[in-house]
Design a protein around this nucleic acid. Structure first.
Length: 469
RNA sequence: GGUCCCAUCGUCUAGUGGUCCAGGACGCCGGCCUCUCACGUCGGUAACACGGGUUCGACUCCCGUUGGGACCGCCA
């Protein structure tokens, strides 16, 4: 029986929850759920100048929307300052850390010079063994890194990664203002929270040897590490705002379903044979770190769009209807607090499910279902609603007016008799009616469209179209 | 500049030494279905970065080259 798995997602609230962060959260969540472990949420807000409450809210909100529920937290680092200081004291007492009196400006200066001369911009260790400290400035605290030997990161995805200790430098663990830095804090938190597996972005791989030394110097066991490949933009650089919409809420607002986004994200780096579409339960069951690839992946909006369309098509109409309401409101088709006939909406949605790729698209298609009248597209009108088709429209109007039970089945009968009387084809009748009713040449099947629009409005729109010829 | 990581169709990927003249998915192109558009369905396009080894045999193992990425902060 292995120890129970504990993982965490630890975003810094300096922005919205973005695609990359969401995928990291997802992998952690899946790993926890698959192993019946614990998923901890921790907010890395030690950067007080850039962290905001608004972003914290946005991140929690995004997680909730995606259905990535956490078992513990959210913990905040700013609430744990005394814990960090205690450990720093200990390191100082044991000689595993030391005060550094170099000013940020001096450091920056030296770094620039080193870079310019092509030397590694590494701290030179000049305060490492200081015996007479200058008393005139507040010191920072640096970690005393071993100068020989090597450190091996046993990564679950990449295998062993070897670092020469001489490449590592004495990094700052406590700023001169008394606040601890990331590479230190992350270790203390992960230890305190009993994290067994650190699953995070590839960009942290090079920080890992430093952190391993912190674990060791504090006498704590080193957790397992799994570094996820990055998500890239089309130009193969790290995905960022430059590449357009990258926040989770942006996708929500564009009408993507959370399960579609999750499904897309999980396939960026993880695979399970040839399977593309997974339910959440399947993901939990099938997920494993071993099946994660090593190479970075380019974000492909087209495939996400396709997946979204699959989910819209295959979800129950009730569910889609529910999600659609906010979009209808935003499109001005439903007033705030206005009641809509749920059963009618469900039927309308059902006709649009296989031809909408996003909820926003669907909401826009709902115009001709919900408005009293629609504008006819000029080109469509010219081609289909004209002198030539007028007799057809009039005949359809006449037939429809006499229909008691205004159902798709009865409507079809009217169309068929019109087709027969004029010795023509259904298409010749359907298109003019489609344009008259929807304003355009594209819609679901004409019989069901008419049924949903309803007899009264159908007749009114036909009248108006005929008058407009 | 240093260190580290990565490398199969345009993109996401399957492949774990022979079953691969490389499979699936998105996209794109064409057929079918059809009242339009979609959906669906059938078919097509398109890849093992390069060079050395190892081996009877390499997409698969090793080395190098090239290309890409990440990190080198008193940011996280």
């Amino acid at each position: 029986m292995r120890d129970s798995v504990r993982v965490r997602f630890a975003p810094s609230p300096t922005g919205y929850l973005h695609i990359g962060g969401a995928r990291t959260a997802l992998f952690n969540w899946l790993f926890a759920r698959h192993n019946k472990g614990v998923f901890v949420l921790r907010i890395e807000d030690t950067d007080r100048t850039r962290s905001t409450e608004e972003y914290i809210e946005a991140i929690l909100d995004g997680m909730t929307w995606l259905g990535l529920d956490w078992d513990e937290g959210p913990f905040r680092q700013t609430e744990r300052m005394d814990v960090y200081r205690r450990y720093i004291e200990r390191l100082l007492d044991e000689g595993k850390a030391y005060y550094c009196y170099c000013s940020p400006e001096e450091l920056e200066e030296r770094r620039r010079a080193a870079l310019k001369e092509g030397r590694p911009p590494k701290y030179d260790g000049r305060c490492r063994d200081l015996d007479s400290p200058p008393a005139d400035r507040p010191p920072a605290v640096r970690f005393r890194m071993p100068r020989t030997g090597q450190t091996i990161v046993e990564d679950l995805i990449r295998g062993p990664v070897v670092y020469e200790n001489e490449q590592l430098d004495d990094f700052i663990i406590l700023r001169s203002d008394g606040s601890p830095t990331y590479n230190f804090v992350v270790v203390v938190d992960d230890v305190d929270m009993g994290i067994t597996h650190v699953i995070r972005g590839d960009d942290h791989l090079n920080n890992t040897p430093k952190q391993i030394h912190i674990y060791r110097s504090l006498g704590f066991p080193v957790p397992e590490f799994a570094h996820l490949p990055m998500i890239l933009g089309p130009d193969k650089t790290r995905l960022s705002k430059r590449h357009g919409a990258t926040s989770v809420q942006a996708y929500r607002d564009m009408g993507y379903l959370p399960e579609a986004l999750l499904n897309y994200l999980v396939r960026l780096g993880w695979s399970c044979g040839d399977q593309e579409v997974f339910t959440k339960e399947e993901l939990i069951e099938k997920f494993s770190l071993e099946a994660i690839g090593k190479s970075a992946a380019v974000f492909n909006p087209d495939k996400l769009l396709w997946l979204n369309s699959q989910y819209i098509k295959d979800s129950p109409a009730d569910y889609i209807s529910e999600l659609l309401v906010p979009f209808l409101q935003r499109e001005g088709l439903v007033g705030e607090g206005e009641d809509i006939d749920r059963e009618w909406l469900r039927r309308a949605v059902a006709t649009l499910q296989e031809r909408s790729r996003t909820l926003l698209e669907m909401a826009r298609s709902m115009r001709y279902y919900m408005l009293e009248y629609v504008e006819l597209d000029p080109r469509a009108k010219e081609k289909f609603v004209n002198e030539k088709t007028k007799p057809l429209l009039e005949d359809v109007r006449r037939g429809l007016a006499g229909v008691e039970d205004f159902s798709a089945g009865e409507i079809e009968k009217v169309f068929m008799s019109v087709v027969e009387r004029h010795n023509t084809k259904l298409g010749k009748v359907a298109q003019p009616v489609r344009v008259a009713i929807t304003g355009n040449t594209v819609s679901p099947g004409i019989f069901e469209v008419l049924e949903i629009v309803g007899k009264e409005r159908v007749l009114k729109r036909l009248d108006r179209a005929i008058e407009g010829i």
